[in-house]
């Protein structure tokens, strides 16, 4: 389902924070702050996760020179059980809050909701975004952090990062959200939780195709189409799908993936980065800055999410995936 925003809500401020390991990221210099302690000096990883979200939101509010009372809505999500880090951060922020879960696609789905609220006139300013903390997420989805299991080459590394954006009324000096696509849940029967890229690629394909078709656009209309966390292998699969559909190699150059690029060519991270914070931190730092500087005029951000739980794949269920997209322009 494609939504076209007539009022073109703008992203008035953005903030991205990351943990110590993310210094290895190629996007490192675009982040607003790096914290040396991955627990954000809290006792538990989950508390650290929550503080990280607060940290990112504080940066957003500081940049826009506002206080929490000026913000109408807070839209956030993460991957921990029942999204407690987001809930607890919302408790501290004391802003009207809706928790959202689209797995790693929450970075975009939250912005879509914020844009809708803005378009509706219900919201003057809304903070939207997502976060993930490596240790807390690994504990939730996979093995204990210190357990020595061999991960296959298709595995991805959950990042410790948070990215948030302040969505408000249209302002030509800032990047604007002109359209969005709420993705369907696509399931091609993949069951391997260590190969998320392969499971999510069809969802990204479905959403991008739907968006371009409805908007009557082609690849060349964009300066960049960036998926969320397909990883190196997932991106290759997505490119192959588009190639089969007749997209030329030159056009495919416009297609990039935040997760595949996040850690550069470092082999230690296997197929690349993943997690709700991966796309959020890249979108709400690097992409926004590139748009503001005028390097990009029009981008399509398509965050992908694997909607699984440890329970569901142990019970043999396949991995349903979704992808949400927003189209950003800079005048």
């Amino acid at each position: 389902m494609v939504i076209e925003f007539k009022s073109k809500p703008s992203i008035l401020a953005n903030g991205a924070v990351a943990g110590p390991l993310e210094k290895k990221s190629v996007f490192y210099s675009y982040f607003d702050s790096i914290v040396e302690d991955e627990r954000w000096n809290e006792k538990t990883n989950e508390q650290g996760h929550s503080t990280m979200i607060l940290d990112a939101c504080d940066i957003v509010m500081k940049k826009a020179n506002i206080k929490n009372l000026d913000v109408d809505f807070f839209l956030s999500g993460d991957l921990v059980n029942q999204m407690t880090p987001s809930n607890f951060a919302a408790r501290e922020l004391a802003i009207s809050f809706i928790g959202l879960f689209s797995a790693c696609a929450t970075s975009v789905s939250s912005v879509i909701i914020a844009s809708l609220l803005t378009e509706l006139g219900a919201s003057q300013l809304a903070i939207a975004g997502a976060a993930s903390q490596h240790n807390a997420i690994e504990k939730q989805f996979r093995y204990p952090n210190y357990y020595g299991a061999k991960k296959p080459a298709t595995a991805q590394w959950t990042v410790t990062a948070a990215g948030y954006a302040l969505v408000g009324k249209h302002n030509p000096e800032y990047p604007s959200i002109v359209a969005a696509t709420v993705g369907k849940v696509v399931d091609y029967g993949d069951t391997n939780p260590f190969h998320m890229g392969g499971a999510m690629a069809p969802a990204a394909y479905d959403t991008i195709v739907a968006h371009l078709k409805k908007r009557n656009q082609k690849f060349q209309d964009y300066d960049l189409i960036m998926t969320g966390d397909l990883g190196k292998i997932g991106l290759k699969i997505l490119k192959a799908m588009f190639a089969q559909a007749g997209v030329t190699p030159e056009e495919l150059q416009l297609l990039r993936d935040a997760g595949a690029e996040f850690y550069g060519e470092d082999q230690a991270f296997q197929a690349g980065a993943s997690g709700a914070g991966c796309s959020a931190a890249v979108y709400f730092s690097y992409i926004i800055q590139q748009l503001k500087s005028g390097r990009f005029k029009r981008v399509l951000l398509c965050a992908t999410g694997a909607l699984l739980s440890p329970l569901s794949f142990q019970q043999g269920e396949s991995i349903p995936c979704t992808a949400h997209a927003i189209e950003l322009t800079m005048e």
């Binding site: 993949d190 292998i233 799908m241």
Partner: peptide, 10 residues
């Protein structure tokens, strides 16, 4: 899709 995925996955 399964075929394509298998071809690309190392």
């Amino acid at each position: 899709y399964k075929n394509l995925e298998q071809q690309i996955t190392p």
